[in-house]
Computed example of a mutant assay.
Amino acid sequence: MSKRIVVLISGNGSNLQSLIDKTKSHEIPGTIVHVFSSKSTAYGLERAKAASIPTSVLSLKTYKDKHLTREDFNKDLSALVSDQKPDLVVLAGWMLILSESFVNQFRGKLINLHPSMPGDIEGANAIERAYQEFLSGKRTKTGVMVHYVIPEVDKGEPILFEKVDILPNDSLNDLETRIHTVEHKLISLAVAKVLSD
Score class of each variant (00 low, 15 high):
Ser2Lys: 13
Val6His: 01
Val6Met: 03
Val7Met: 04
Gly13Pro: 01
Gly13Leu: 05
Gly13Met: 00
Asn15Pro: 03
Leu16Ile: 07
Ser18Lys: 07
Ser18Phe: 09
Ser18Asp: 10
Leu19Tyr: 02
Ile20Phe: 02
Thr23Trp: 03
Ser25Leu: 11
Glu27Leu: 15
Gly30Ile: 03
His34Val: 03
Val35Gly: 06
Val35Gln: 04
Phe36Lys: 04
Phe36Trp: 08
Lys39Asp: 12
Tyr43Thr: 14
Tyr43Ser: 14
Gly44Arg: 02
Glu46Asp: 10
Glu46Tyr: 06
Ala48Gly: 10
Ala48Asn: 07
Lys49Phe: 12
Ser52Val: 02
Pro54Gly: 11
Thr55Trp: 06
Thr55Leu: 09
Thr55Ile: 14
Ser56Gly: 08
Ser59Asn: 11
Leu60Trp: 05
Lys61Leu: 14
His67Asn: 13
His67Met: 11
His67Ser: 13
Leu68Tyr: 06
Glu71Cys: 00
Phe73Met: 02
Phe73Trp: 06
Asn74Arg: 01
Lys75Ile: 04
Ser78Asp: 02
Leu80Asp: 03
Val81Asp: 03
Ser82Thr: 07
Ser82Gly: 03
Asp83Val: 07
Asp83Pro: 00
Gln84Glu: 10
Lys85Arg: 09
Val89Thr: 08
Leu91Val: 06
Leu91Trp: 02
Gly93Met: 04
Gly93Cys: 05
Ile97Tyr: 06
Leu98Asn: 02
Leu98Ala: 08
Ser99Asp: 04
Ser99Gln: 00
Glu100Gln: 08
Glu100Tyr: 03
Ser101Trp: 01
Phe102Gly: 00
Val103Cys: 08
Val103Ser: 08
Asn104Val: 05
Gln105Lys: 10
Gly108Cys: 03
Gly108Ser: 06
Leu110Trp: 03
Ile111Ser: 01
Leu113Glu: 05
His114Leu: 12
Pro115His: 00
Pro118Glu: 12
Pro118Arg: 08
Asp120Gln: 09
Glu122Ser: 15
Gly123Lys: 02
Gly123Trp: 00
Asn125Thr: 13
Arg129Phe: 09
Arg129Gln: 15
Arg129Lys: 12
Glu133Ile: 05
Leu135Val: 14
Leu135Glu: 08
Ser136Leu: 13
Lys141Gln: 10
Thr142His: 05
Met145Asp: 07
His147Ile: 14
His147Asp: 12
Tyr148Gln: 00
Tyr148Pro: 01
Val149His: 04
Ile150Asn: 09
Pro151His: 13
Gly156Asn: 09
Gly156Arg: 00
Glu157Gln: 15
Pro158Thr: 07
Ile159Asn: 07
Ile159Gly: 02
Ile159Tyr: 03
Leu160Ile: 15
Lys163Glu: 13
Val164Thr: 00
Ile166Cys: 04
Asn173Val: 13
Asp174Gly: 10
Leu175Phe: 06
Leu175Val: 01
Thr177Lys: 15
Thr181Trp: 01
Thr181Lys: 15
Glu183Cys: 06
His184Cys: 13
Lys185Tyr: 14
Ser188Leu: 04
Ala190Glu: 05
Asp197Glu: 13
Asp197Tyr: 09
